[in-house]
């Protein structure tokens, strides 16, 4: 596969390490009253969609950036990629 790195363009997916659903960026509030349940859901449960999936890839043999890649899991077609820190920054 080729990952369209937002800074570096198309890169061999071999340079990357896959992590999982981009929801893993959104760690629950550890102080919340039901924190343990929220963490269990965060750590263990996945949407696992057959279709468009936002997911985390780490450019480990590259610029060491974490990316949020939007990819169709039924065709492997990639619809976009962003720097995770930008995604997080924009949301905050």
């Amino acid at each position: 596969m080729l990952i369209p790195h937002p800074l570096l363009g198309l890169r061999d997916s071999q340079e990357f390490t896959y992590f999982g659903d981009a929801s893993l960026m959104w760690r629950p509030d550890p102080e919340a009253p039901e924190a343990e349940a929220a963490f269990c859901e965060y750590v263990f449960l996945r949407d696992n969609p057959a279709g468009v999936h936002r997911e985390l890839w780490f450019h480990e043999q590259g610029d060491r950036s974490w990316l949020v890649v939007t990819r169709d899991t039924t065709t492997h077609e990639i619809l976009g990629a962003e720097l995770a820190s930008d995604v997080k920054g924009a949301a905050q």
């Binding site: 999982g20 659903d21 263990f44 449960l45 996945r46 949407d47 696992n48 969609p49 057959a50």
Partner: peptide, 18 residues
Amino acid sequence: GSSGRVMSMAGMRLPIES
């Protein structure tokens, strides 16, 4: 293999990735 897809029709999220 399709557990996620099928069980989502029953509204369930699973501790599974395909």
